[in-house]
Design a protein around this nucleic acid. Structure first.
Lengths: 373, 373
DNA sequence: GATAATTACTGTAACGATACAGGAGATTTG
DNA sequence: CAAATCTCCTGTATCGTTACAGTAATTATC
């Protein structure tokens, strides 16, 4: 085995233009070896070559030692790991990616319209929390949802720019899911699909939320209920409608139509529509909102119509953050923990990359109402 | 010049394990050339080699043609570009990065505490909008601000994992700025510094906002004013204080101390502190809030103390989104456009990478008050 | 004691791109 | 017409990593 003492630097090359100093060493025998760069003030980034030189081992050996390969001696592994840690070795991502195709990237595909009260923040930090301590980086790939949502997916697939993808705003029959499935790209969806493909997902039980919302309104004596829904093409719209209808028939209430706006409409439109609704002859006495942002405009709208929360009408709303209680404590709010969703999604993608079965990577969170706490 | 007709495929190798088909071609003369992979159903990703084969040119020529190098003929460039476009060539990022060190990545370093009403969303999509159409990807690098904020910066510098960095929560004497400056890493800060380093930044004129807030309160007859400030170590805290003090002396008002909480405190704490303040003997008749999120808790707090906005007290607040007017139309709000900030920051980093002078990459946005619109 | 198997390590090639140093052929120059 | 110049193109080496196909030395097998 080579020991440091049999290494001898015999030639130093100084390349002034590149500002680097390289050198040759003579080994125990007679052969010369390229010693790599001399690090000026530890500024040059260490590579496998650096460790190979410092330990007197071959580059391949070092690579395999750091991978804990079975054909490397235990003490050699220990020595290599020690040196690697000492000099702060970190694998060059471009080298690994070029050689193996592994990007160590998770792509989060977000629609610009995504935002209602901190959604992006929560999901990003949820994902990040899981990725911390792994070699994965998080790349945000945005798209204007009005344009083709397939564009970012195709880009990622065609360029192989991620090992796994997280998408949201899932639709029951989602072409993005079909394409990624076909191409064998690991992914997880925020929201379920209904197209015969078993895949990792995380979802919030919006059906239960809507049904439970009706129950709580009826328990307060409200029988005429309107709901403001998400855009029609999304998966959770269907779940919301089902829960709402089931709740109505289960608890004996009736639906007051309110479909001129969605939770994605401009707040002004929501405000005006709510005021019109609450001023009309068939004004509901119960309201359900599927998103916290629009709830604020609804409250303003119903008050502009002269109604008072808790007296003339009750309102059940989902929220991402704990904001609504500060606005009107009368609002009956259920929390959707988007940060936890991000964590579940990240865990699911990582496990999927690791080869776990998709049916084991599906989670559904139940609504928790603030008033039950 | 070689034309397609002088190319002749003479040998086809089928590698069944790797599921790829490669082939050799005979050129006009006698030499053989590796033709690269035959694309099965256009699934294999095209590389320079693919284009080289299709055009009959050398790989180097293709590379230089796509870079519009001066030593390549005009018609050759045209031909290469045509083929590249036809087959949807996109440079392999790992190849470029390994060879040149260029990552084509912009890192956005965010503190987990960043969020107040959609900040993350707005800045991410602002940056993305500028990066769209460039080869740059956006990587989110989060950190718990309680821990060492230098960690992500050092990681990026040590691993060379980005070409440019955007940071926020800038401090007057910010060690991150000093380090990136020293290492020559292009960056832009959200917020200014005060340490003798000229660097790209984007900032909101919080000093003017605070001074103007005082002016508007005094114009409504309010003379006893309290302000809720950001955490003390941040740059914009100092700007806010200066603007506030200048406003007080300029318009003849006095300060009511309110420093038991900051805009980052839990909303419950802000609520309670505001209620206590407004119930006390020295309750102010004017309030200034530097962030929209905490304004909501303040409103709830002052109302819990029996005060009424617009009658007993006026409140001036900054906001990222247009939410406050729905909560209490009496709130005097000024908008800070975070999406625009993201765009400015992205533009600044890109220009800095391109070698532009830092002093030309500094922008300061003026507050715009909703009531002036 | 010769052969086989095992252990521990190593060199070469390749991933896709580009910097660099040519190099053939046409064109200009003296 | 030879030499110099210009145009346009090309091969080689390299970035850092890993798959693969070895190899030398030691240990086990019969």
């Amino acid at each position: 085995m080579l020991t440091p003492s049999c290494l001898q630097i015999v030639q130093i090359r100084i390349d002034e233009e590149k500002e680097r100093t390289t050198f040759m060493v003579r080994l125990g025998g007679n052969e010369m070896r390229d010693g790599g760069d001399l690090k000026d003030g530890a500024r040059e980034r260490p590579t496998l070559k650096t460790i190979a030189f410092m330990t007197g081992l071959g580059i391949t050996t070092v690579s395999r030692a750091l991978k804990d390969a079975p054909d490397i001696g235990a003490d050699t592994k220990e020595r290599v790991r020690l040196v690697a840690r000492q000099i702060g070795y970190q694998p060059n991502r471009a080298g690994v990616r070029l050689r193996t195709g592994k990007t160590n990237v998770i792509a989060l595909v977000l629609s610009i319209e995504e935002e209602l009260m901190g959604f992006t923040n929560h999901i990003v930090f949820g994902i990040s929390e899981v990725l911390t301590g792994t070699p994965y980086h998080l790349v945000i790939t945005p798209h204007a949802s009005a344009r083709d949502p397939m564009v970012p997916i195709r880009y990622i697939l065609d360029t192989g720019s991620a090992d796994g993808v997280i998408i949201s705003r899932t639709e029951p029959n989602d072409p993005r899911v079909a394409l990624m499935e076909e191409r064998g790209m690991p992914f997880a969806t925020h929201g379920r699909t209904n197209m015969g493909i078993v895949h990792p997902y995380h979802d919030y039980d919006n059906e239960t939320f809507a049904r439970e919302a009706v129950r709580r309104l009826v328990a307060r004596g409200r029988k005429n209920i309107a709901i403001i829904l998400p855009e029609g093409h999304l998966s959770y719209t269907g779940h919301s409608i089902k829960g709402f209808r089931d709740g109505l028939s289960l608890h004996g209430a009736r639906s007051v139509p309110f479909d001129s706006v969605t939770v994605e409409s401009p707040l002004t439109a929501i405000h005006d529509a709510t005021r019109a609704l609450m001023s009309g002859p068939d004004a509901p006495d119960g309201l359900i909102s599927m998103a916290g942002g629009c709830t604020i405009a609804m409250v303003a709208g119903l008050e502009a119509a002269g109604k008072k929360l808790g007296r003339d009408v009750d309102l059940v709303s989902k929220q991402n953050s704990d904001l609504l209680k500060w606005i009107r404590p009368e609002i009956i709010a259920a929390n959707e923990d988007i940060r936890a969703a991000g964590m579940e999604l990240a865990r699911a993608v990582l496990a999927s990359i690791g080869g776990a079965a998709p049916e084991s990577l599906q989670t559904l969170y139940q609504p928790s109402f603030a008033e039950d706490a």
